[in-house]
Design a protein around this nucleic acid. Structure first.
Lengths: 211, 211
DNA sequence: TCAAAAGTGTTAGATTTACACCCATGA
DNA sequence: TCATGGGTGTAAATCTAACACTTTTGA
């Protein structure tokens, strides 16, 4: 299985990739992957692999699909099942990241990757983007507390288009599960912006979400 | 791989299922499936399997995903990749259908199926339904010539809700790629209804589809 | 004092929904 | 002649998109 780890940083949607450490394709840019053991489900394998890479559990993960061209792997015949995961970049221990030799790359500036990994990322992004339209999964890419501007930038990065600030905030106000706190973030501006948080409970009570 | 063959007949969305002819699970209701050969891609395997079952090629097919619980197969460890296909029921040779021992069952009245096949169908339906909202793939489930009432019934069956006749027809009129012919179908009513056809070319020229 | 991000409403246009009657025909 | 499905338009409501200025504060 191969995993597409999405993160959001500096206003950009990013993906974790690294240099491949084994043959065939040693040294090429690649997604992080692993193998499904005989005694684990493919979902478990994906969770295990992502946890191994990031040290994080209980992430939001979804299957992207199976990739099975005959010669997608230059070595032997391998069918891979891709998964994507959403993480908050700040939760990823820098040391662990370096140990695995992976880095965050802007999804708009990806190099040519090993095998069909570019295609996997394209499909994962499409699915994630669709999901984001119908469910508030975007919060998985942000810290627990975030400003409305950060949230807007996230939606803009994912959809690849700018949004109108006033219309965006109007929509957010209608969502009861985005709670305003009394906390203020001053890192992004002199004036400071209110911090908001996602209330999972409220979301599940009132699932009329539509962005 | 397992295939979910969708058909539309008598105003209902249907799926092809049959009694399993091998152990484990012999005699249980099941989807039709096959195995991916070492020298074919998973897409090719799906096409081959569906062609074997229906005698039809160049069908609209899409991958549903990989299913990989450890004990989804009561025998040995098997991971299955599910695909769905859309066919026009009338194109399916009755003889071939009987030879394979499969039958059309209303998707609302499915029995308990072998292994995780019910789940596969649920997911396939969801994907197909989403696809139908953004692309006019529904025509694959109808004869080349169809009446607007047939088309409306199809959308109703897939979405599971009734639609307003006038609003539906208004939307269809906006789609240039649905061509009215001068032919009239009298099988559905005494008065007769105009037959329409899907113009693939017009669709690709003007892909502003939205239902 | 000024640059930079935060915050805030209104209006026009587009889209969506609800709704009811006449037509043509075969039985 | 009547039961059955085919065919058609309008108006209200809702949703979407466009748009500009004031506030706060650190440098």
């Amino acid at each position: 299985m191969d995993c597409i780890i999405f993160g959001f940083d500096e206003g950009k949607l990013k993906v974790l990739i690294g240099r491949r450490q084994m043959d065939p394709g040693r040294g090429e840019w690649s997604l992080y992957g692993g193998f499904v053991a005989a005694d684990e489900s493919i979902n478990d394998a994906a969770n295990r692999t992502v946890a191994e890479l990031t040290g994080l559990n209980n992430l939001y993960m979804r299957q992207v699909g199976a990739f099975g061209s005959i010669d997608r792997d230059p070595g032997e015949r391998v069918i891979s099942i891709a998964y994507y995961a959403l993480i908050n970049v700040k939760d990823y221990d820098e040391r662990l990241r370096l140990d695995h030799g992976v880095e965050w790359v802007n999804i708009e500036e990806l190099p040519k990757l090993y095998s069909d990994h570019n295609e996997m990322i394209r499909k994962a992004r499409k699915l994630m983007c669709q999901k984001l339209r119908t469910e508030p999964v975007g919060f998985r890419l942000l810290p627990d507390l975030f400003t409305l501007t950060q949230l807007q930038r996230l939606y803009e990065a994912v959809n690849g288009e700018e949004l109108d600030k006033r219309n965006f905030r109007k929509r957010i106000k209608d969502m009861d599960f985005i709670e305003k706190t009394e906390l203020i973030d001053k890192t992004g501006s002199k004036r400071g912006a209110f911090l908001y948080r996602f209330n999972k409970r409220a979301y599940h009570d009132d699932p009329n979400f539509k962005l």
